[in-house]
Amino acid sequence: MVNYLIFLPVGNNPSKPNWRSNYPSDPNWGSAMPTITWQVYRHYSDVQTLKDYYDHIVAYVKYLHGIYNATGLANFTVRFGDWIPPPPEPMTNGSLIGSFGFLRDVNLLINMSQNFYADGMQAAQVLALALPDVIPANVRGAVINQLITDINQKGNHMTTGIVSTAQIYPILSDNGHHDLALELISSTTYPSYGYMFNNPYENATTTWELWNTPLTGPAMNSHNQAMYGSVGAWFYSHLAGIDLSSNMITIRPRMASESKKHIMSKLDCQLSTLYGLVHVSYTRDERDTISNSILLRVTIPPNAQARVIFEPLFVGGQYKTLIEGNKVIWSSDFDTMNV
């Protein structure tokens, strides 16, 4: 059983807990409110407790944030600090200890929040996911789920603009939702790339600035908006799977899962690189439900090294045989390489 000192708010202000009645609590003591709320939720899955105290915790963290804005972490407020180290040892800098309580409460608030960023819309989730180390590892899954949920609620459509559309396809492909990315890029209903090229009003030959260009929009309404061409990078990096970021060329085509292979059953891609021309193509036999065969062709420039990475196309999937020409170069039955 963990005991906490509970601090009551001053008057009707839930954001400023006091120790006794005459001075504000130390941040590590005031942390009782968010800490207990979070632990009750963790142990009992008690969502109602989160709802009941969430606004109070937000107000409290805002109160501490106001102090931070005035003092910074170096001079952050403290009352007791690291209370009573063993004599004769001195106490560690109090502001360091106080700032720990503040930053810990911020992290708790992130965890107990609705687990999505800003207004919950797709752009906010995508841009947070696209930057490294922005989203704590323990809530990253919840942010991805919020993105997927919103896409599904919109009828499998994007609500992203020019900046976030450039990131949404790699985010989906890299986080286990490549099938959904393929469905988005294959859609012909509004709003989608396919709608630009297949609609009742004006079939585009280039990418628009506005998803609904034929209907209405502001004065800036380009019919040739290069920034929406950003999806082309995903064609090379994920659909063809060409990665030139190291001294070795990596070929790692992301393919639709077995249940969705009808979305994209073939690919043919050529990319001019500093090494020379890289050519990747594959064909999947949609009628072949027994062997699930894929014919992959890869051409690498002379004097260049490359590796090919395969990914399972269904849960628990394993590779049985790799054949080059008519020669078995690897088999799980023998687990040997015949080079």
Score class of each variant (00 low, 15 high):
Met1Thr: 13
Val2Tyr: 13
Ile6Trp: 07
Asn12Ala: 14
Asn13Trp: 01
Ser21Asp: 12
Gly30Val: 07
Met33Glu: 04
Thr35Gly: 03
Thr35Val: 06
Trp38Tyr: 15
Gln39Leu: 11
Val40Ser: 09
Tyr41Met: 04
Leu50Gly: 05
Asp52Asn: 12
Ile57Tyr: 00
Lys62Trp: 00
Lys62Asp: 10
Tyr63Leu: 02
Leu64Arg: 04
Ile67Asp: 02
Ala70Gln: 13
Leu73Asn: 10
Val78Thr: 10
Phe80Met: 09
Gly81His: 04
Pro88Gln: 10
Pro90Trp: 04
Asn93Ile: 00
Phe100Tyr: 14
Phe102Lys: 01
Leu109Ile: 05
Leu109Phe: 06
Asn111Asp: 14
Tyr117Leu: 13
Ala128His: 01
Ala130Glu: 08
Val139Ser: 00
Gly141Met: 03
Ile144Ala: 00
Asn145Arg: 13
Asn145Phe: 05
Gln146Pro: 03
Asp150Thr: 14
Ile151Gly: 07
Gly155Gln: 08
Gly161His: 03
Val163Pro: 05
Gln167Ile: 01
Leu172Thr: 06
Asn175Phe: 01
Gly176Arg: 06
Asp179Cys: 07
Leu180Lys: 01
Leu182Lys: 06
Ser187Met: 06
Thr188Arg: 03
Thr188His: 07
Thr189Ile: 12
Ser192Asn: 00
Tyr193Phe: 10
Tyr195Ser: 04
Glu202Val: 12
Glu202Cys: 09
Thr205Asn: 07
Asn221Lys: 14
Ser222Cys: 09
Met227Gln: 15
Ser230Tyr: 05
Gly232Lys: 10
Leu239Trp: 10
Leu244Ala: 09
Met248Trp: 02
Arg252His: 15
Pro253Tyr: 02
Pro253Thr: 07
Arg254Met: 13
Ser257Asp: 12
Glu258Ala: 06
Ile263Glu: 08
Leu267Val: 12
Asp268Glu: 07
Asp268Trp: 05
Asp268Asn: 12
Ser272Phe: 14
Ser272Asp: 15
Thr273Pro: 09
Gly276Thr: 03
Leu277Val: 13
Thr283Tyr: 09
Arg287His: 13
Thr289Lys: 15
Thr299Glu: 13
Ile300Met: 06
Pro301Ala: 07
Gln305Asn: 15
Gln305Ile: 11
Ile309Gln: 11
Leu313Glu: 14
Phe314Leu: 08
Gly317Pro: 03
Gln318Asp: 08
Gln318Met: 12
Asn326Thr: 15
Ser332Arg: 15
Ser332Asp: 11
Met337Thr: 10
Val339Pro: 10
